[in-house]
Nucleic acid binder design. Structure first.
Length: 816
RNA sequence: GCGGAUGUGGUGAAAUUGGUAUACACGCCAGACUUAGGAUCUGGUGCCGCAAGGUGUGGAGGUUCAAGUCCUCUCAUCCGCACCA
């Protein structure tokens, strides 16, 4: 029968659906595997990145099913978010309709690719049932003090009219639309992720086995822990007077307390409260105020171009020397790190040095290199020996740091402090299409939690999405309610949550049996069985945000008593991008490949085979149309040659010794492929070499015609290939093996036993000839044969050494 | 600037522990079959060379009997972070 991808694929997709083939068992005594790909945003259609992502997880899922594991391989949609609203503004569609239409379309695409998802556990995070439990968690976290509201400077995207988290600001621009962000002072809710900063950092060590190093490093840098000294700088009397005694001091942080005697000025961020006070109380000239205002409004990119500052005409007292130190405003001091103020040591810090040069501020050298001299043309930022530092002279930097911190603590003028770059996670969004924050503002009671039995607080459907303002706030009735505590008229919170909240616990929801979905988010027993995720597969672009938030939620849920483990994802596989013509596929570049068209022309199996064969998963994948054609031809041949199979429901038993050379070789190749395949899933993930092994086996099989050898080979090879090209393998297997071969395959060691072996012969490491020797041949004989085969190279030379590497090669070392 | 990765034929890429470099595939070349081929099958294909042979894993050194693999330096490309005090 001629290979027809369409007929075969449709038939098996229907079969899998009818037979509920991929639903996990509820028998928790079985060994399990939880295979998860990062779920998609329902943007409308699948792109090749999705196809690669889910092909990988599907291969894992199918492999482990064959190995008799109970496999959970779910799919859902991360379906809240701005694009739905943007589409609404652009096309007048309703976000909900747009979202669920897209989900329906993409689901069909998924199943046309043959992905073995649990259909019964499909979910969308915009489902009211999902929102219901999420709002419950939010209430729990608020009550635990892990969610709080404060006014703060927020990143505001003027284009999307929304607040962005720090992580969503890339190079000073919106991560979605690239518009430069501006700072805006607003109330919003924050998760106290910083409370878990230390644990999030420390537990990275638990992930060293299973996560790529790159991701661990990125998270480590993001958390950005640094140790140092925090202390107060007190104003002198004149400055105190100018400030009307409102501020006596300000706080600074340094990681280099050993340079403290080198302080020659201090600098405040333009947003610092002392600066604000001085502006508000007209303590600065109009001109200076204008300069500060300008500084505050320049973007972070602008600020990085050149250092700029203004002297405030204030002085503080150096805590150790008692000398006066001038106070400046500097554009390079960040308000949201440390205390927004720094001590400046221009002799030993590049930034301070640049600034001092520009404004002609003095340098005090207090660190001498261990060897040689520093040249003074730039800051000496290395560690060294302390000089000009009174009682600390002669100490090395490291000892001095400890001693100086100790001294500050003894004198009660400073404290050993740890700072983090990590900031609390702002989750408020002034948007419609998100999960409403289930809080109520009551004039008498303040912020009041909604009662859990009233959840979910669902979105109103009758909204107008114009792109201006907050649709929930603008809705005529939605926000009006009565206070759950006192019953008076009150208003609902109109902010919705960042969509990263939904993706921070969806992997837990999948563990819940669908029949319990109405009554609980998940159960401890089910979580205990299914978690952690054995293989988590997704793009490197989620290395920080999603993965850090999901880790944070896991730890919070643990502390709330919902679950009993620390880390959600045991192994993480970050796939590379799909490229065409050397560039990332994108509509604007016009270099996209449409999955639907590919399936239509060649079938899902071809798409899957190409994707897994063309490159290892972590590398970039260069699209190549003729290589796709090649994958199609292989599948066609694979199906055609299955006519050599003799129907059976068990693997043939073959007397290996009686076979001819080509037959033996073919069997060896088949079992080699099996050995390779088993490696792939446990650590190497190199599906490309697994497939190459199967191709080699096919080439070897073609050189012989023994029906038993063919039959055995297909029994094994269709099992190996089922995770990659499932449809055609199920077809071949059902025609010949009654699907009995999709199970763990035994490696037959006997096929690897050979009587003779070929050895390379090298002279001084250069390969000169090849010999065939018996497996038991003595080294003496092997060397004799090697010499004979390379006689012309040895003529007139002295042999210095002879090396035999068993089963590999012979090396003869000569001179003369 | 800091951190991470990658560099192998015309192309995508192989090479468990240092042990026959280029598996597998694409492309290309030749041949067979054919009215025809963008089908199928067979063979060839790192580079230079008629050949013998030489040469070859970004570059330069080093360790070793032996280096794509280990060490030192260096170049290029990509990614992440980036005034974090």
């Amino acid at each position: 029968m001629e290979y027809s991808s369409k007929a075969i694929e449709q038939q098996w997709q229907e079969y899998w659906k009818q037979n509920r083939s991929f639903e996990p068992s509820e028998d928790f005594t079985k060994p399990k595997k939880y295979i998860l790909s990062m779920f998609p945003f329902p943007s409308g259609r699948l792109h090749m990145g999705h196809v690669r992502n889910y092909t990988l997880s599907d291969a894992f899922a199918r492999y482990y099913r064959q190995q008799n594991f109970n496999v959970l391989h779910p799919i859902g949609f991360d379906s809240f978010g701005m694009p739905a609203e943007n589409a609404a503004i652009k096309n007048g569609s309703h976000p909900k309709g747009w979202t669920y239409d897209n989900i329906d379309y993409m689901k069909n695409e998924f199943y046309s690719l043959g992905f073995s998802f649990s259909r019964e556990r499909e979910l969308a995070t915009s489902d009211e049932l999902y929102t219901k439990f999420e709002q419950g968690f939010i209430i729990d976290m608020f009550e635990k003090g892990l969610l709080y509201r404060k006014k703060g400077l927020l990143n505001w995207c003027p284009h999307d009219q929304t607040v962005l988290a720090n992580e969503q600001v890339v190079d000073g621009c919106c991560w979605r639309c690239d518009t430069p962000i501006v700072k805006k002072d607003m109330n919003q809710y924050y998760f106290k992720i910083t409370q878990y900063g230390d644990e999030l950092l420390a537990d990275l060590s638990k992930l060293e086995e299973g996560w790529p190093k790159q991701v661990l490093t990125m998270q480590e840098n993001w958390i950005g822990k640094s140790n140092g000294l925090a202390f107060d700088l007190f104003f002198d009397d004149a400055s105190l007077g100018r400030l009307h005694n409102t501020f006596k001091s300000f706080d600074v942080f340094t990681t280099r307390p050993d340079t403290i005697y080198g302080v020659s000025y201090t600098a405040l961020a333009p947003e610092h409260e002392i600066v604000t006070y001085m502006i508000e109380n007209s303590l600065l000239s109009e001109d200076v105020i204008a300069q500060i205002k300008h500084m505050k409004t320049t973007s972070s990119i602008e600020r990085q171009k050149e250092k700029a500052g203004i002297s405030l005409g204030l002085d503080v007292i150096h805590p150790l020397t008692g000398k006066k130190v001038p106070v400046w405003i500097a554009n390079f001091v960040l308000m949201d790190y440390g205390s927004g103020a720094v001590m400046a040591v221009p002799a030993h810090d590049e930034r301070d040095f640049d600034f001092a040069k520009k404004y002609d501020l003095p340098l005090h050298t207090v660190i001498k290199p261990f060897e040689g001299e520093s040249n003074g043309a730039c800051a000496f930022t290395e560690v060294g020996e302390l000089i000009n530092s009174e009682r600390f002279d002669g100490l090395n930097s490291k000892d001095a740091q400890a001693k100086i911190i100790e001294y500050f603590e003894e004198q009660n003028i400073g404290t050993k402090t740890t700072n983090y770059k990590l900031k609390d996670w702002g989750v408020s969004r002034q948007r419609y299409w998100g999960a409403p924050i289930p809080f109520i503002h009551c004039e008498s009671c303040g912020i009041v939690m909604e009662k859990k039995e009233n959840l979910p607080i669902a979105l109103p459907e009758d909204v107008e999405i114009t792109g201006e303002g907050n649709p929930l706030d603008n809705h005529p009735t939605w926000k009006h309610c009565s206070c759950p505590a006192c019953g008076k008229d009150a208003v609902r919170e109109t902010d919705t949550m960042d969509t990263f909240v939904e993706s921070s616990w969806y992997f837990l929801r999948f563990c819940a049996s669908p029949q319990n979905w109405e009554k609980e988010a998940f159960s401890k027993e089910q979580i205990k069985y299914w978690m952690g995720v054995d293989h988590y597969i997704g793009g490197i672009e989620h290395a920080i945000l999603h993965l850090l938030y999901a880790r944070f939620f896991t730890k919070v849920f643990r502390d709330l008593g919902y679950i009993e483990f620390d880390e959600p994802f045991e192994r993480l596989l970050t796939q590379g991008m799909v490229l065409k013509d050397g560039a990332k596929m994108s509509k604007s570049k016009g270099n996209t490949v449409d999955p639907d068209a590919l399936i239509e022309k060649y079938g899902a199996d071809t798409a899957r085979l190409f994707i897994l064969f063309a490159a290892p998963p972590t590398q970039e994948l260069e699209w190549n149309d003729s290589a796709v054609e090649g994958a199609y031809k292989f599948i066609k041949r694979f199906y055609d040659r299955s006519s050599n199979i003799v129907k059976t429901d068990k693997i043939p038993s073959i007397a290996h010794a009686k076979l001819g050379k080509d037959e033996k070789f073919a069997r060896t190749k088949v079992y080699e492929a099996l050995v390779r395949a088993n490696d792939v899933y446990s650590e190497r993930y190199t599906f490309n070499t697994m497939i190459a092994g199967v191709m080699e086996a096919m080439n070897a099989l073609n050189a012989q015609s023994n029906p038993e050898v063919w039959t055995e080979a297909y029994w094994v090879l269709t099992s190996i290939m089922e995770p990659v090209i499932p449809h055609v393998c199920w077809q071949i297997s059902s025609e010949n093996f009654s699907l009995a071969n999709f199970t763990s395959q035994q490696v037959l060691e006997e096929v690897f036993e050979v009587e003779s072996i070929r050895l390379g012969v090298s002279i001084n490491g250069k390969r000169r000839s090849e010999i065939e020797v018996g497996i038991e041949e003595s080294n003496e004989n092997i060397i004799a044969m090697a010499k004979e085969s390379t006689a012309k190279w040895l003529e007139g030379k002295t042999i210095v050494k002879e090396i035999v590497v068993p089963k590999k090669l012979v090396n003869i070392v000569i001179k003369g």
